[in-house]
């Protein structure tokens, strides 16, 4: 087998985007790192005693303190003159990052710790059985934002974490998707070459929570990008410096939504079209805001990773 730093034998679901994401991140970072992680799927499926899927130093403490524990790790390395020993990577899911862990993350950003924070965004609390988080997309059906006679699912828009990071003056911010593994890895490498706090948010489909085919994890992730619903970009010193262009014309959001049970209610109930329109509008706004559309349609469409 290939030599990895996040190993097989972990107990993630079939087709888990987060397991893939984590492996891509640590493999790109290399062995000289110390990683922290928030409570959540990743921690549960990777470190069930007495086994560990991690070949790098790893610490899990609590749901909401990955960024603070990493701050302590970084401060200790500094205090003991061991900065050269390891780079620090803090990890968390979308709930542990954007909701319960946001305060600790804000502190980490504000103090300027030399830490890369990676958020594996699977858009809900999957570890506890699919409840909505601050990064759950609009109209998504979760156990705490269920669709019903008078509900279309989650009523709120995704929290704009990159903008929150940017407001803290974080020098390097990026979004990425497991649909583009090399992009994830080059962003991790780039982030680690920059001193100070870094934020990388990786879109990682969850076949369980999204009710999607495990075999289609990459396909679904790609559609999120190609529809404009999950813009992939880099921000340096507060300015968007690079955008992953999508083929012109952008794919309609229905193509993405229809592959996932979490949006199935939009296509079953009368009135769903209007909701789909709203989601299309979100995609259109992203496309405009980030200038996602490529100049030449065909060229990008065939670009392979």
């Amino acid at each position: 087998m290939e030599k990895h730093l996040f190993l097989a034998g972990h107990t993630a679901c079939y087709g888990c985007g987060e397991a893939l994401g984590a492996r891509l991140v640590v493999d790109a970072a290399g062995p000289n790192i110390i990683t922290t992680d928030a409570t959540g799927c990743l921690e549960v499926f990777s470190s069930r005693w007495p086994q560990s899927a991690w070949a790098v130093p790893f610490i899990h403490s609590l749901f909401e303190n990955s960024a603070a524990v990493a701050s302590g790790v970084e401060a200790a390395l500094k205090a003991m003159g061991r900065q050269g020993e390891a780079k620090v990577i803090a990890q968390g899911g979308d709930g542990g990052t954007a909701d319960i862990g946001l305060q600790c993350l804000s502190g980490m950003f504000e103090r300027g710790h030399d830490i890369l924070y990676v958020c594996y965004d699977n858009e809900a609390y999957m570890n506890t059985g699919v409840q909505r988080s601050g990064l759950t997309p609009y109209d998504s059906d979760t156990r705490t934002s269920p669709s019903g006679k008078v509900s279309w699912g989650n009523r709120y828009l995704k929290k704009d974490m990159p903008a929150i990071a940017a407001a803290h003056g974080v020098p390097y911010i990026a979004t990425a998707s497991v649909a583009y593994p090399k992009d994830v890895q080059s962003k991790v490498k780039k982030a680690l070459s920059i001193t100070g706090p870094k934020y990388v948010q990786v879109h990682v489909p969850c076949p369980l929570g999204w009710k999607s085919d495990p075999a289609l994890t990459i396909k679904v992730a790609k559609l999120a990008v190609e529809t404009g619903l999950y813009p992939i970009f880099e921000m340096e010193n507060g300015v968007v410096t690079k955008v992953r262009k999508i083929p012109r014309p952008a794919k309609p959001v229905t193509e993405y939504l229809k592959l996932q049970g979490r949006f199935a209610h939009l296509f079953k109930k009368g009135g769903g079209e209007a909701e789909v329109k709203k989601i299309q509008q979100i995609a259109d706004e992203n496309i405009k805001k980030y200038g996602l559309l490529s100049e030449a349609a065909e060229k990008v469409a065939v670009e392979k990773e």
């Binding site: 190993l7 097989a8 034998g9 972990h10 107990t11 990777s46 470190s47 005693w49 007495p50 086994q51 560990s52 899927a53 991690w54 070949a55 790098v56 130093p57 790893f58």
Partner: peptide
């Protein structure tokens, strides 16, 4: 397997787990 200091786990040991 002895419990060490509250449950330290040795690295890369998940390979023992037969998820096949």
């Amino acid at each position: 397997m002895k419990v060490i200091l509250g449950g330290l786990a040795q690295p890369a040991t998940s390979l023992a787990n037969n998820t096949g």
